[in-house]
Design a protein around this nucleic acid. Structure first.
Lengths: 344, 344
DNA sequence: CTGTTAGCGCCTTCAT
DNA sequence: ATGAAGGCGCTAACAG
């Protein structure tokens, strides 16, 4: 933070406004002075101070991303999509995590405030109270994988309900009736939607009392492992397990392996998310591919459109990205490939 | 218009400086005015503008992270470690990627400049020319997983050489002699170190002409797959393959699977990085666990110490974090099943 | 075309 | 204890 525009002006024997004009190419400057300025700036290794600039501009050139975690395949892919789109549009990225905690969520919001031009928020567990505090920000916000029904924000989600419905139907069509379901975190709306899809498909098949088949999980491998062990104690034992996400399903696989139970012969297993590592499990995991990367890039593009004022009085976006059934060996020795049946 | 300190001062019937003093708790203010200010600030939802503040402070409260990619298990875990440590110390995070391209690397450096108080840079492919341009920054820098021999920066690496050496010895001790090696990107120093460890162990075993056993890879699954197919055409065929990282090794596993070759019975396979998903491959992958998460948090702590001036005239850090051999079934059936290895 | 001037929002001496 | 005034580095009027 040492060499300023003033130093450059002095070195080039011009005024500071001329320097500014040359560097921003904001109006015509005589060629000789232009070169002089460029030369001086280069020699002095001058780099404008973005803080000073954004004090005038009211714009930072940055996008904020607030999500539960940065690690894990799901968030990692999401960030990849965000990063690519942001870089392509010359925005820098500020990233914060909530760890699904309200206080960290608020702290992150505070930290991003005015340091970025817009926010992308993923908070599946976001309660109504937090949602209410969001309009206090000046920046436009795009929510992803979050259910904010009542507010005028752009919202981009996956078709969690449709995917879970299709996945459950897949199991039903294989002849399974007793399909246990391992739920995600109770407060996460995406998890709730998946459970809803499960229940709907079961109900459509005339299967009552699914509640007895539902087990609490937490989107983690450990929770899936624990739930599987509880499921194994049921009598009669379910012939299939549909976990709310792939990590849980991987926990299930390891629990079944430990118990000497063969998949899919004895018990079929399915996950959700379509993580790349699901190809490498034993056996490869049936799942629902959600377009995580695309979710990120779509959110960035939408946000940038808003920032450019292109969407000034457009109605808030409400988009559910389509998901895709990935049938692998964990449910059926025969692997097929297909899109989500239209359930809208 | 956004609400400024002036609005608060007006609403509370005090001067701007009083507001500043109350909000920053910078000197004693009479209790009644204090409450007045706090009240007004709350009512107006006043949030100080960080740009204006950092113009004076010359500090932003942020850390920059520059790395090749954000997605993938390796970078994802690294970011997790960074995020945790940064959050604990109330620093926000700016993240940019180079995709291993020089121009993107420089663009990212420019974007971070002055927007953060310090930088963590992971650039295994960093050439001497780029290294030369780095001192032009005013912020302190900690390099991770990067070899910058000649410059006075803090550098934290893994013991790539030692890990590769130990891993190769493990294969040699299992009785393998013809051990093929799939290298990482030619310009990546961490990959080079791993290759060096491989060569050293081979040489110590009296095995000459290893160059014929080395194949170019690129740290990706696809490159590992392609290299494996080339290896399979060798005559005599190597009995073991040591890949420069886990992703390559997973590509090898799939190529061998396609070719109907059994692992580890026909060919043993080993990776490097110790990714979590290596537990789920068929068979589970022998690897070298590198403490990625710890690398991130250590770098943050070191950087913050520098920022606090605690390390004013300390010599630059040069630290190699220890790695750990993870022996799984892809090299030795004994690891999981408790059977005698077939080679003996 | 170019230089001078007035802020952007805030903190920090200075006075009072 | 409080208010007024002077920048931080930069851009955007406004004159010349």
């Amino acid at each position: 933070m040492r060499v300023t525009i003033r130093d450059v002006a002095h070195a080039a024997n011009v005024s500071i406004s001329t320097v500014s004009r040359v560097l921003n190419d904001t109006c015509v400057v005589s060629e000789d002075k232009r070169l002089l300025v460029l030369e001086a700036a280069k020699n002095l290794n001058y780099r404008p101070n973005p803080a000073a600039r954004s004090l005038l501009n009211k714009s930072t050139g940055g996008l904020g991303v607030l999500l539960p975690f940065v690690s894990g395949e799901f968030f990692s892919e999401f960030l990849g999509g965000i990063d690519e789109a942001a870089q392509k549009n010359d925005f820098f990225l500020m990233i914060s995590t909530s760890h699904r905690h309200q206080d960290e969520f608020r702290a992150a919001m505070r930290a991003m405030d005015k340091r970025v031009d817009g926010l992308i928020i993923m908070a599946p567990e976001l309660g109504a109270e937090d949602a209410a505090s969001i309009p206090s920000l000046d920046e436009p916000v795009v929510f992803v994988n979050t259910n904010i029904d009542q507010r005028p924000f752009d919202v981009i989600n996956f078709d969690n309900f449709g995917g879970a419905h299709a996945l459950t139907r897949h199991l039903l069509e294989l002849g399974h009736h007793r399909i246990a379901h391992i739920k995600g975190p109770a407060d996460a709306r995406d998890a709730q939607e998946r459970t809803r899809g499960y229940r709907m498909a079961m109900a459509e098949s005339g299967i009552e009392d699914v509640v007895a088949l539902e087990f609490q999980g937490g989107f983690t491998q450990e929770s899936g492992h624990a739930a599987a062990n509880r499921i194994l104690q049921m009598d009669p034992r379910p012939s299939a397990i549909m976990a709310a996400n792939d990590y849980s399903a991987m926990g299930v696989l390891s629990a079944l392996h430990e118990a000497g139970i063969s998949v899919p012969k004895d018990v079929a297993v399915a996950g959700f998310d379509g993580l790349a590592s699901g190809q490498f499990t034993v056996p490869p995991l049936t799942s629902v591919r959600v377009p995580v990367r695309e979710l990120g890039s779509t959110a960035v593009m939408r946000l940038i459109d808003r920032l450019h004022g292109k969407l000034a009085d457009t109605a808030p976006l409400r988009l559910d990205l389509p998901v895709e059934l990935l049938i692998r060996e964990s449910t059926s020795a025969k692997a097929v490939h297909g899109r989500t049946p239209a359930f809208e």
